[in-house]
């Protein structure tokens, strides 16, 4: 006869179950990531699919990233001006807007917006393909789903995100410039001068590296949850939610870790 659990064990049991479940999920995602990386370097490579995904993930995400960036840059300029005016440091607006956008806000907000747009659509698309046996059909047509579906999406997102974020950074800085010069009365030439003077190449490169990692995470999470979607509409819905949530959490976590690695010294 099994020993009944004491109250302390009853309290610990669900925590233990959740921890084991979390570790198992991390393990499955790690294996999926390793498989994806191994398929990237092995032929065949579906170049047309890759180009198609570059368009879908990269080009069509431009409006949402651009809009996010322009309003973020504009709000940042207002905040820094108001904060800086408390100790007569209004002139730091251009440099802090530029550094803030390029190092942190551009990649992170761009990544989160793309996570909302791309991870959800990839998970929903692949989840529906799983439920309607289209992924099984691919296998019977001698086409590896990982190579045909996952690799082009992951590669496209990894390469497109830095470009998207570079464009977003420029638009964000321009948003700050517009507010700074039209609303806050800063001199346009001095604004541009301060922006360029205070930015160094590592600020830009580190932001683009972050963007690339975030692109990889977004597509990987979309594909992983889509490919492992449960049955029916509820299964696809859950896969879509999980893809966005896990991509967002991983973006914020890896952002902190990369910031530590890049700038803590």
């Amino acid at each position: 006869m099994a020993n009944p659990m004491n109250p302390f064990q009853v309290f610990l049991a669900p925590i233990g179950r959740s921890t084991l479940s979390l570790l198992a999920a991390i393990g499955r995602i790690a294996i999926y990531m390793a498989e994806t990386l191994s398929h990237i370097v092995r032929p065949p490579f579906y170049f047309r699919e890759f180009l198609h995904q570059l368009m879908v993930i990269g080009y069509f995400s431009l409006p949402v990233v651009g809009l996010t960036a322009v309003f973020t840059g504009a709000a940042l300029a207002l905040q820094i001006f108001e904060g800086g005016s408390r100790f007569n440091a209004e002139s730091v607006v251009p440099s802090i807007v530029a550094i803030g956008m390029v190092r942190e806000l551009g990649p992170v907000l761009g990544g989160l917006m793309v996570a909302g747009r791309v991870a959800s659509s990839v998970a929903a698309e692949l989840g529906t393909m799983r439920v309607t046996e289209q992924i099984d059909a691919l296998v019977t047509l001698s086409t590896h789903p990982m190579k045909y579906l996952t690799v082009p999406r992951v590669l496209a997102a990894t390469l497109a995100m830095p470009v998207l974020v570079a464009v977003g950074d420029s638009i964000g800085i321009f948003g700050g410039f517009l507010v700074g010069t039209s609303r806050l009365g800063l001199n346009p030439a001095a604004y541009l001068h301060n922006t360029v003077d205070f930015l160094n190449s590592w600020d830009v490169v580190s932001g683009l590296i972050k963007a690339s990692v975030f692109g990889f995470i977004v597509a990987l999470m979309g594909c992983y949850h889509g490919m492992n979607s449960g049955r029916g509409a509820q299964g696809v819905g859950r896969a879509t939610t999980n893809a966005v949530v896990s991509a967002s959490v991983l973006i914020l976590t890896t952002n902190y870790l990369m910031t530590e690695a890049f700038f803590s010294s």
Partner: peptide
Amino acid sequence: MLFQGGALFDSMPVWQNVAFRLLRG
């Protein structure tokens, strides 16, 4: 194989579905 629900690929026209195997591999 003919699947129960057809399992046709929504993203491509009918002829590319039929010729899927003949367009790659």
